[in-house]
Structure formats: structure tokens, C-alpha cells
Simulated assay, not measured.
Amino acid sequence: MSAVPPEVPLDDDDFVTRARAGDLEAYELLVARHTASAYRTAVLLGAGSDAEDVIQEAFVKGYRKLSRYRAESSFRSWLLAIVANETRNLHRSRTRRDGLVLRAAVANPESQVAEDGAVGAVLAGERRATLVRALRLLPVKDREVIVCRFFLDLSEDETVTMLGWPRGTVKSRTSRALTKLRGLLGGEEVHRG
């Protein structure tokens, strides 16, 4: 391949094309470009301290499935859809694991279950912590749409792609989820005041 002058930035589609042709460095550049938003997605969807594992698995799966990427939406939203799926997989395995931990705690009352403090480390500040607490109280699908639209700044089209929902569902769920979130935040303020 011919060298590209450094002043001409390549877009994701250029990197995808190069990665599909076997250029691992191009895929590494995609990973570098999207690691922060992938990490934020995993944390905000509830991966907590497992967020790095989730995104690592998502990047590996993304590379393996690169031939399936059709550029109908942005590479970023396609990749974040994989991150969201991996986070859902994590929740399913956590549910099974948490059941085992609870049974072990009953059998051995002296053991302590460590609290997941990763979100607190990532999201600083009182207001943000309050927002994240309220966000966690939302049903999963409401939380996902809020994270996509407002925390990750995905467009409606990118949200449709990432979540795999019809556009009307994204619109209506966003509206209902915002109403629920406002109610939770209002209740939080009342309890604190």
C-alpha cells in the first residue's frame, strides 16, 4: 500500500478496508481511536470493574467479524453494539456467579463481598455520581437508550444500529426513559435535601 501523508487523516472506513486486507496496524489504530468510547459504554451499561475485559473481548470479536461490517452505519456504532452485547453477556454470567457468591456467603458468614467501585473511579463528582445511581435504577433497555443518546452522544441512527431496535422504539423509549430518569433524580434530590 502506498504511504499516506501524515497530514491526511484516515477515516474509519479506510482503516476497516486496510484491516480487512490483513493490515493489523490499521485495526490497532481503530482500537486506539475507539477504546475510550468503548470503555465508557461498558462502564455505563454496568460492566464496572470488568469493563476492560468486556472491551478486549469486543475488539477481538470485532476483528473476527470485520467481514460482516457493511458500513450502513458508522464503525463506531457497529463496534459499540458489540460492546453492548458483551456487557449483556457479562450480566448473564454475573447473575450466575452472584448466586454462587451469595450461597458461599451464607455458608461462610465471615467472608465479605467487595463492592464494585469502578464506576466511582471513572465518574467523578457528586452530580455525576447521583446521575449514575439513578441510571442504574432504570430498567436495562431504558438505561441502554439513555447511555447511547446522551452519554455517548450517538445519533438516533447510530442508536438504532447499536441497539438493533426500530427507530420508533428508540424515540419512544428515549422519551419514557428520560421521564423515569427525571423522576428518579427528583426523588434523589428530595431524599438528600
Rank of each mutant, 00 (worst) to 15 (best):
A38W: 00
L80A: 00
K65H: 14
A3G: 12
A81P: 00
E7S: 13
F75N: 03
D12W: 05
D142G: 10
S77Y: 00
L181H: 02
V145N: 01
L79W: 03
A134D: 03
E144Q: 12
G183S: 13
D53G: 09
V147K: 00
W165N: 01
L102Y: 12
L66A: 05
V170H: 04
A84I: 04
H191F: 12
P109L: 10
F75T: 02
F59N: 02
L30P: 00
Q56M: 11
A177P: 01
L30R: 01
E126M: 09
R103P: 01
V119G: 06
P6F: 14
G22W: 06
E72T: 15
L102K: 15
Y63K: 09
A134S: 14
L90A: 06
Y27S: 07
L154G: 01
L80M: 05
A105F: 08
L131D: 10
T169V: 11
Y27D: 07
A129L: 13
A121F: 10
E115D: 14
G62W: 01
E110N: 08
D14W: 05
E7L: 09
A47F: 00
A118T: 04
E7A: 10
G48L: 00
P5M: 06
K65P: 00
D153Q: 08
V16M: 09
T174R: 08
L135M: 08
